[in-house]
């Protein structure tokens, strides 16, 4: 089943400058693994060294944050869109 994965502008340089890519996947996690398997340079921006999605990386299935679904185990269906949406954070304190 074809799932569209939308890449934020900041990461397109690591995904062949594409705004979106398509994969066949049955869960959100599987689609993300395929994405980072195909475009390995994306991995360090999306995952921590121990393999968890970084806290400031938000994954949406259509318009739902997967944290409120079944996280990476959220099932996907043909025609779904997964979006990678950054949170932005920072501050003066070290």
């Amino acid at each position: 089943m074809a799932i569209r994965l939308e890449i934020p502008t900041a990461l397109r340089q690591f995904a062949g400058k594409q705004a979106s890519v398509e994969f066949n996947a049955t869960t959100v996690g599987e689609a993300l693994q395929q994405l980072t398997g195909t475009y390995a340079d994306l991995r360090k921006h999306l995952y921590t060294e121990d393999g968890r999605i970084r806290s400031f990386v938000n994954i949406y299935l259509n318009d739902e944050d997967i944290r409120y679904l079944q996280k990476e185990n959220t099932p996907t269906k043909d025609g779904d869109t997964i979006s990678i949406v950054p949170s932005i954070a920072g501050g003066a304190k070290i």
Binding site: L11, Q13, F14, P86, I88, G90, G91, A92, I94
Partner: peptide
């Protein structure tokens, strides 16, 4: 993105770096 550093130099902190994304101007 823009942000302010109250009573602190206009230099990114380690926290800024840890949470930053490539490509954007900060």
């Amino acid at each position: 993105w823009y942000h302010s550093h109250p009573d602190h130099p206009a230099r990114p902190s380690e926290y800024d770096r840890e949470h930053a994304w490539p490509w954007y101007s900060y």
